[in-house]
């Protein structure tokens, strides 16, 4: 099995709540990615079978959504918002700081696979800008110094 039995059972339960088999596809893609790390060919084949779609149809859906990746990302995916509210309060500086601190650019992953970096669009933290999301965790009202501490915390967690 490409995903855990627990997740597979959870999908079966949720799919019963909808009138069509494909309805729960977008959350299934996201939760599978969370468990596997990315949407591998095997995950796509598994979800295509489950939803009775072709693999092409599943890939068609994947390419629409910004959170979905078909390549492995870092263990901690650092998503820096530079949209208007964050930009006005230093979001671009935070992005530059992360680039030099991690030694990687937009959509790149560190050699040890610990971090990947992405410049993202509005994450809904406008009143607490500038903000970064690492995986699903929000880090808000950031400065370069605070960002360093946040990255250090994740770095020590990775060990």
């Amino acid at each position: 099995m490409v995903i855990s039995d627990k997740l597979d059972k959870f999908f079966d339960e949720k799919m019963k709540e909808y009138p069509t088999r494909r309805s729960f596809l977008v959350p299934m893609l996201l939760y599978s990615q969370d468990e596997v790390g990315y949407l591998s060919d095997e995950v796509i084949a598994y979800l295509a079978k489950k939803t009775e779609l072709t693999e092409l149809e599943v890939r068609n859906v994947i390419s629409y959504y910004s959170l979905l990746h078909t390549k492995p990302m870092g263990k901690y995916h650092v998503q820096v918002c530079t949209n208007i509210s964050c930009m006005l309060r230093g979001g671009e500086e935070i992005l530059d700081h992360c680039k030099s601190k991690l030694g990687i650019g937009h959509k790149q992953t560190t050699a040890d696979g610990t971090f990947s970096l992405e410049e993202v669009e509005c994450i809904g933290a406008c009143s607490w800008a500038p903000a970064v999301q690492i995986n699903y965790d929000f880090h808000e009202n950031l400065t370069n110094e605070k960002m360093d501490k946040v990255l250090d915390q994740y770095r020590s967690k990775a060990k």
Binding site: N83, I84, S85, E121, C122, G124, A125, C126, S127, W128
Partner: peptide, 11 residues
């Protein structure tokens, strides 16, 4: 699906 830049009220 709150995503309009500048908007963080549904959170």
């Amino acid at each position: 699906d709150e995503s309009e830049p500048g908007t963080c009220k549904d959170r």
